[in-house]
Design a protein around this nucleic acid. Structure first.
Length: 437
DNA sequence: TCTGGGGTCCTAGGACCC
DNA sequence: TCTGGGGTCCTAGGACCC
């Protein structure tokens, strides 16, 4: 007999802000925001900042006045810090539950099917909160339910209503319906802005309205995704716990520039840099890529300016994870889409069509017809020792002792991103460890 | 002047085949 | 005048997530 599943969704409160405040106790009751790359917009807010009406995703230049007026303290994104604290949280969760799916940097689903009664489920949730709070200093909320979609809503309830003590058990259908009736349909996991508007236009306003809809008809009018959501809202589990992260299907490195790029030489540097970063991620995944895409664009927000956005994709003669192969192709692709006379805001590289090293079936005609227009057909395999070179470069770059890169990535780098409010790397760099006097 | 980055999945439509 | 039908594969674009 199979036990019906019970999921717990553990979600860190205001995660990025909490990470920053952890090392700045002086900011305990101060409104704090964390900014996106380039200090562009707000991506995390402390409860004080939320209370002041600072919206998620708002561009920083639009709230300069409020920032000064209320003394809101901004931080640039410090991903090294957040990733390190995240892995501490996740490791702790793995010691508390038999099966854990790390869903994002600040959330995880736990399988707690073995925890029997309603009382002990809530106790379990409280215990999780206490351990994470005491050991790491991060506050989490816990939502418990028979499906992932309901666990998400339970978590939302735990965050919204302090009287819950940060834990909501939504295993009883009666409680499910009561909470669903209170929530607008857009709060449901998988229902975004567009679907929300379309659903409302046919009279589905609340999460409960959606739960009461006919799954088949939802599939016809929308998609299987919406049908699955309806079933999940009714306690029928359609989404399983994924303990092992599936292998990636694409890797993207892209970034807005700190200053607009107008010269091809600068864009070449930036694209080189992205090809190198993407290659590094690819090697961490122990994969090789065959497809390379380069994309560049002007800022879509500036209506007075001439706009241009384009991308180009091509295949390598055979899969590779060697930065030099990826870069060479990326440079050729960039040349095909570059146009003079624009102020470029962003550029990037996407790698796709992955193969595990060594098991690629080459095309029968590779080397005869020549997939690439330059170089010897089997140029990549002539560098068996390229793997070793890349491994050495990765080791040096990850050691924190220095940075090795191709000259094409540039030395002046006027285009690199702005990070004016960066906190120290408290937990990942010896020089930045806080000192107690 | 200044608006993030990195992913996944699904669907529709075209190309191509028999 | 009359102009099939069904299957597969691929890709672009849309929608969603954090």
């Amino acid at each position: 007999m199979t036990v019906s599943p019970v999921f717990a969704l553990v979600d860190c409160n205001n995660f990025y802000v909490s990470c920053e405040k952890l090392f700045r106790p002086d900011l305990k009751n101060t409104p704090v925001v964390v900014l996106s790359n380039n200090d562009g917009c707000v991506v995390a807010r402390s409860s004080e900042a939320k209370a002041l009406g600072i919206r998620m995703g708002v561009p920083v230049f639009k709230i300069q006045r409020e920032m000064r007026q209320h003394g809101i303290v901004p931080f640039s994104s410090n991903y090294a810090l957040y990733a390190d604290l995240s892995s501490r949280v996740m490791n702790t969760l793995e010691s508390l539950a038999p099966r854990v799916e790390v869903y994002s940097i600040d959330e995880a689903f736990l399988d707690i099917s073995g925890v029997a009664s309603a009382v002990s489920r809530v106790e379990f949730g409280q215990q999780v909160r206490q351990v994470i709070g005491n050991w790491i200093g991060i506050t989490v909320c816990v939502g418990i339910a028979p499906t992932k979609t309901l666990a998400k809503l339970a978590n939302h309830g735990a965050k919204s209503y302090p009287a819950t003590g940060g834990v909501v058990d939504l295993t009883s259908p009666d409680r499910q319906r009561r909470l669903l009736a209170l929530l607008p349909v857009g709060e449901v996991w998988g229902i975004g802005r567009r679907l929300s508007a379309r659903l409302q236009s046919i009279g589905i306003e609340t999460a409960l309205d959606l739960a009461n809809a006919d799954p088949k008809s939802m599939r016809n009018q929308f998609s299987v995704v919406v049908e699955r959501t309806v079933r999940e809202l009714n306690g029928e589990s359609c989404l399983e716990l994924e303990e092992i992260a599936p292998t990636k299907k694409q890797i993207l490195s892209s970034r807005s520039f700190g200053e607009k790029v107008t010269r091809l030489s600068h864009m070449r540097e930036a694209i080189c840099e992205h090809a190198a970063r993407a290659g590094e991620k690819l090697r961490q995944e122990n994969q090789q890529a065959r497809q390379v895409t380069v994309l560049i664009r002007t800022s879509p927000f500036n209506a007075n300016e001439r706009q241009y956005a384009n991308s180009a994709t091509a295949a390598l003669p055979k899969p590779s994870s060697d930065t030099r192969d990826l870069t060479a192709l990326a440079m050729r692709l960039l040349k095909t889409i570059w146009r003079d006379g624009y102020r470029y805001a962003k550029g990037g590289v996407i790698l796709s069509d992955f193969h595990a090293p060594g098991i690629y079936q080459p095309d029968l005609f590779v080397g005869l017809s020549g997939g690439m227009s330059h170089g010897a057909p089997d140029r990549t395999s002539a560098r068996r020792n390229g793997d070793e070179l890349m491994a050495v470069i990765d080791r040096i770059n990850q050691s924190g002792k220095g940075h090795v890169f191709l000259a094409g990535q540039g030395f002046k780098r006027s285009w690199t991103m702005k990070r004016e409010h960066l906190s120290p790397a408290y937990t990942t760099c010896w020089d930045d460890i806080p000192k107690v006097r």
